[in-house]
């Protein structure tokens, strides 16, 4: 039995839009969930599954602008 918030897709990525400067590291580290638009800004494709949590955390930590957050869905 899993605790609430443990099931797949239970976390979401949020972009702090004024902070984001389209550096693109998030899309390189988590291409399964983030692609870049034509100006280089992230497009989040959906909730983060359990097996993607570690990569998502790395993407959040790597953002040089601290513009990406991972929140419980």
């Amino acid at each position: 039995m899993s605790a609430p918030g443990d099931e797949a897709g239970s976390h979401v990525l949020r972009v702090d839009w004024p902070r984001c400067r389209a550096r693109g590291l998030c899309a390189e580290l988590l291409p399964e969930r983030i692609v870049l638009d034509e100006w280089g800004y992230p497009v989040v494709l959906g909730p983060v599954s359990q097996d993607q949590l570690e990569l998502a955390g790395a993407a959040v930590a790597a953002c040089p602008r601290r513009a990406l957050r991972l929140l419980p869905g």
Binding site: P18, C20, G40
Partner: peptide, 9 residues
């Protein structure tokens, strides 16, 4: 002009 999507889009 604070957010990229608005500034470009």
């Amino acid at each position: 002009g604070r957010c990229g999507r608005c500034r470009n889009g």
